[in-house]
Design a protein around this nucleic acid. Structure first.
Lengths: 242, 242
DNA sequence: TTAGTTCTGGTCAGGATGACACTAACTAGG
DNA sequence: CCTAGTTAGTGTCATCCTGACCAGAACTAA
């Protein structure tokens, strides 16, 4: 039932929605390095029909906030991220041109090659899902709702995140080389880092442990593989998908 | 209208509420130092009637999230904090024994002697509002809902906050001595700091500027007063009350 | 066998930090 | 008025952390 004026519609109770900003590490021919990419979905309904938006949907009555984010992500993009963290709750009055919506936004990190994240295959065939560079002003300029600000805030949070060790671990696999971790840092911070110094600092952290294996098949000297021995952060910050 | 069983009530749309964790700096005879205190309100309705809880209430249809937090705080405690920041959105299914509630929680810093924060006088006369030490296990043990976990998370966030400069500024006045800033740090970190070293690091930050004034009236050598020349953090993290 | 690239360990200088001694400036009490 | 006591503020020293850089090790490709 539509409402005839603004005052009337604002008396409606606010709708609750959950959205997600998903970051992944991908090759960027532009810079030669890896950089951060994120998937967006094309809206099929008004408002903003046809424009790109963050994946999301209403909060189901039987879902916790985290479950709602994970379930919706699976349904709209096929992604099943191993890591979801709450970003922020957006609740300004004029976020949506129709009824008032309070959105609780999560952010996720997925691995490009993770069999658990079945995203790649699904997304390639779906014309309503596409990946964009996280700092691409072209793509971000025409997003639905206030999703541009949300993405910029997510990027800011990611860059200001202290415990990069665990972030790298989420974007990479169970075992990784130090150069791969460096690529994560370089993509997030958007600058080149000295390999030797980076190695020194990373080896001094207790969270990363060396293994006896080496990565073969490369073009040059095979690098040693390392493992992340997760130190627990605050419970709320490290929720896990069931 | 009550519901007869769990399945039925869970089909109701979740209610939206806003609560606030308020920190203030107060003398602590126990340790001799200053420490963090927070006000709680006694619940006058079921559920948890008579128990202590965070100040909060439902989200008004014409309030932004921030306005809702500020308005509710004023009504229930008389506090008008200069600084409110969003902490987290809590939305587990079993947070409330009656209907489902999603709470968006803010945290605030107030000054004990701020004329703007008219709290002290109001709160002293109201038997339904009381201050507790933020790490007092006795008081926190019997809180309503999941408010104990919320407070612990707020404390964790406060301690892990990077930009202590601005935090000190919020808890203190426009002008302050370096010893007062040190008291803030000592209260938050819960350990003593070397006055000389603390002075050195603080004077090296561009955010804090010395004035020509000194604080008179003390028992000993009058300390110089300083001023905070606020550097802006991310917009979302530094919302201001209108 | 050699050139090319990455991996890995090392040195060095400069800045930040903790421990601590010492002087400066005020009040309280006789 | 003088002295003791307390806090404000300065300076020094050793240590740790960080960025810049060098050089050898280990592998591939030709």
């Amino acid at each position: 039932m539509p409402f005839s004026n603004v005052a009337e519609r604002r008396e409606q109770p606010p709708a609750l929605a959950v959205s997600t900003v998903i970051f992944s590490l991908r090759d960027d021919e532009r810079t030669g390095r890896k950089s951060l990419w994120l998937p967006l979905v094309r809206r099929t309904r008004e408002p903003f029909r046809g424009q790109w938006a963050l994946p999301g949907g209403p909060l189901g009555p039987r879902d916790s906030l985290l479950d709602a984010a994970a379930n919706n992500l699976r349904d709209t993009t096929g992604l099943i991220p191993r890591y979801l963290e709450q970003l922020y709750a957006f609740g300004d009055l004029d976020r949506s041109p129709t009824r008032r919506v309070v959105s609780i936004v999560y952010w996720a990190l997925v691995r490009e090659d993770d069999p658990h994240d079945t995203a790649t295959s699904v997304l390639l065939d779906d014309p309503n899902v596409a990946w964009f560079r996280a700092d691409d002003p072209e793509a971000l300029g025409s997003l639905a709702f206030d999703h541009r600000q949300i993405i910029e805030y997510a990027l800011w949070r990611l860059r200001n995140k202290v415990e990069y060790g665990s972030i790298a671990h989420r974007l990479l696999g169970e075992r990784f080389t130090l150069a791969q971790v460096r690529e994560v840092y370089e993509a997030v911070l958007d600058r080149a880092l000295d390999p030797a110094n980076f190695r020194r600092t990373l080896r001094s952290t207790p969270d990363i442990e060396e293994t006896d294996e080496f990565l073969s098949g490369g073009k040059h000297r095979p690098p040693r593989l390392y493992r992340y021995t997760g130190s627990t952060t605050h419970p709320l910050e490290s929720e896990n998908i069931s």
